[in-house]
Structure formats: C-alpha cells, structure tokens
C-alpha cells in the first residue's frame, strides 16, 4: 500500500513536468507573435545556465498612465500595446483586464517596484520575459538595435521566443 502510494506520488511528479511542458508548447503553438524594443541588457552567468537579462521599453510606465489607481507591489497590470515603427509600444495601462482595440494587443505584467524618476512617479513592471537562456559562452549581446519576439498566449500571458539584434536572430543558431 505504502509502496503503491509512493509510486503514485513519483508518477505525479513526472506527469506534472510533462503536462507543464505540454501546456507551454500548446500555448506557444497558438500564440500570436509581436516584437518589443529592448533598451538594456546585462549579461549574467549562473550555475544553471548562461542567460541574457533583458529590460523592455514598456517595463517603466508613468503612474498617471495606469487606470484604476496606484498599484501595489506584486499587483498585475494589463498593458495595451499598439504598433509603432514595427514594434509594439505602450498605449495604455490598467489594473483590470482590458479588451484591445483594432490593431492593439494586451500584455500582462506584475509590479516589481515604484520609483520617482526626475519627480515623475513610475511603476516598473516585470512580464516574465526578462531572461533569454543561451548556450554556454554565448551570453553578451552584440551592439545594435535589439528586439524581442514575444508570443502572446491566452490571457495576455507573454513568452519570450527569440531575440533579434539588427534584424538577425541571437544567438545565431535559432532554437
């Protein structure tokens, strides 16, 4: 009986990993791709893998832009994007889910910090797309205009799929 329970618990572990991976594949398969402009990147090395840290133009949002009042740390914010010079840029933000207009997209982020830059209150959002894992030794983006290809899945949840430097995929051998 105990052995049976243990085997069941182990199978649950394996099933969770498989189901999680499968659900992510499913979401990515049906997700629309957009591009966002990247303004800052700080390559870092960690034991579990080299990755490139990305920061987005849409990460820092003026507080007055956010409809629904001042958010708290960890609160979700729905950011409406519109196409501008081949990348999607900030159009509006809200503390409640919104329906995008024609040509618009919505991405959901979480408040990480609140700051007062040059006397203007700002909110820093994280979207869960701030890391690009690269093969060992390939961290360190070359100079150039950096754009990230994001897959927007159900519920405005974003996934980072590729990064481009001056229009070329990085790292050069695509996954």
């Amino acid at each position: 009986m105990r052995r049976g329970l243990f085997i069941a618990a182990v199978l649950v572990q394996a099933l969770v990993l498989v189901a999680w991976s499968a659900s992510l594949e499913w979401e990515l398969a049906g997700a629309e791709r957009i591009r966002l402009e990247v303004v800052q990147r700080d390559p870092r090395d960690l034991l579990r893998g080299d990755y490139v840290s990305l920061q987005y133009v849409i990460a820092d949002i003026p507080l007055e832009t956010i409809a629904g009042g001042r958010p708290d740390y960890g609160d979700r914010v729905w950011v409406t994007l519109r196409l501008q010079d081949n990348v999607y840029a900030l159009a509006a933000a809200s503390r409640a889910p919104v329906t995008p207009g024609p040509g618009q997209r919505v991405i959901v982020g979480r408040v990480q910090s609140l700051s007062n830059t040059s006397g203007r209150p700002e909110v820093h959002l994280v979207y869960g797309i701030e890391r690009l894992y690269v093969p060992e030794g390939r961290s360190g983006l070359p100079r150039g205009r950096v754009e990230a290809e994001i897959a927007l899945a159900e519920g405005a949840r974003p996934f980072l799929t590729r990064v481009f430097v001056d229009g070329r995929p990085y790292p050069s051998k695509a996954r």
């Binding site: 990993l17 999680w20 991976s21 992510l24 990515l28 579990r48 893998g49 994280v126 869960g128 797309i129 701030e130 890391r131 690009l132 894992y133 996934f159 980072l160 799929t161």
Partner: peptide, 11 residues
C-alpha cells in the same frame, strides 16, 4: 523544473 524554465525562457 529548472530545465523547463530554461527551455521556455521563463522568468
């Protein structure tokens, strides 16, 4: 779990 995070660039 870490591998899935790496494969799908989850942050």
């Amino acid at each position: 779990i870490a591998l899935i995070g790496q494969l799908y660039n989850l942050a």
